[in-house]
């Protein structure tokens, strides 16, 4: 059953599937850069909201960043959930930061690139530990925690948070925000997006379609949820 047996008369070369390529495909690269652009834009909008919240909180304005910090890291676990390849979390977070700095002129300045890379790598750590194979809820919770820890360590180096008052409160706020606004939100967002069909040609889309097909094939479980988002 060699390929040569199957070769038609008009072609001599063996039949080789060209789809098998390692690394990121062009579709994945575009998906990731566009995610970075959209989230860079949303992050930038969040920075404007942060400014307002800081002013509203007066002398405690500095704490506002801990409430919102998870929101600035959400694209890393989302990208990992969709593409499921090593490195994409850190890179997409870095690219989102680049969009904020280079194209939207973020007031945080170029240090944001470092922040983005550290936060993205932090969020990715949870997926690295599970070897990019598990995407259950708890992995996303863990991702929120690792992202918050990385971000806190960076804050200690950059701004000496551990030398200031309220360090314990800062850490607690960072953790809660990381778990809710980064980890869990990424999973919720990914699940909603895959239902719309725009992610059909991604690892997440393939996994989802396989599950829908399995559910539909098992009559005992074929409830509303199974037929639910079946391609129309």
């Amino acid at each position: 059953m060699s390929a040569r047996d199957a070769a038609p008369a008009d072609v001599d070369a063996p039949v080789v599937d060209v789809r098998t390529r390692r690394g990121l495909t062009l579709s994945e690269l575009v998906l990731l850069t566009v995610l970075a652009a959209v989230f860079g834009f949303l992050y930038w909008a969040l920075v404007q909201a942060w400014g307002a919240l800081q002013l509203a909180m007066g002398p405690f304005g500095d704490l506002a960043q801990h409430v919102l910090v998870g929101g600035w890291m959400v694209v890393a676990p989302l990208a990992l959930y969709i593409v499921r390849k090593p490195g994409v979390g850190a890179v997409v977070e870095l690219a989102a930061a680049l969009v904020e700095v280079a194209f939207l002129a973020s007031p945080v300045g170029p240090m944001l690139l470092v922040v983005g890379l550290v936060q993205g790598a932090g969020a990715e750590l949870a997926f690295t530990l599970t070897r990019y194979r598990r995407y259950g809820w708890w992995v996303f919770v863990l991702s929120g925690v690792t992202a918050a820890v990385a971000s806190t360590l960076l804050g200690m180096v950059r701004s000496g948070w551990h030398l200031q008052d309220l360090f314990a409160l800062r850490v607690a706020l960072q953790l809660v925000s990381g778990v809710v606004l980064c980890g869990l939100l990424a999973r919720v967002l990914g699940d909603a997006l895959v239902r719309t069909g725009v992610l059909d040609e991604t690892a997440l889309g393939r996994a989802w379609r396989a599950r829908v097909a399995r559910d539909a094939a098992a009559p005992a479980r074929a409830t509303g949820a199974a037929g639910d988002g079946a391609p129309a």
């Binding site: 575009v30 998906l31 566009v34 995610l35 959209v38 967002l189 725009v198 040609e201």
Partner: peptide
């Protein structure tokens, strides 16, 4: 609105990727 924006944009991204190929 943000969700719809994301979906519409990701669809455009997929089509652009095909165009680039």
């Amino acid at each position: 609105a943000a969700f719809t924006l994301l979906v519409v944009t990701l669809r455009q991204a997929q089509q652009m990727a095909v165009t680039l190929e």
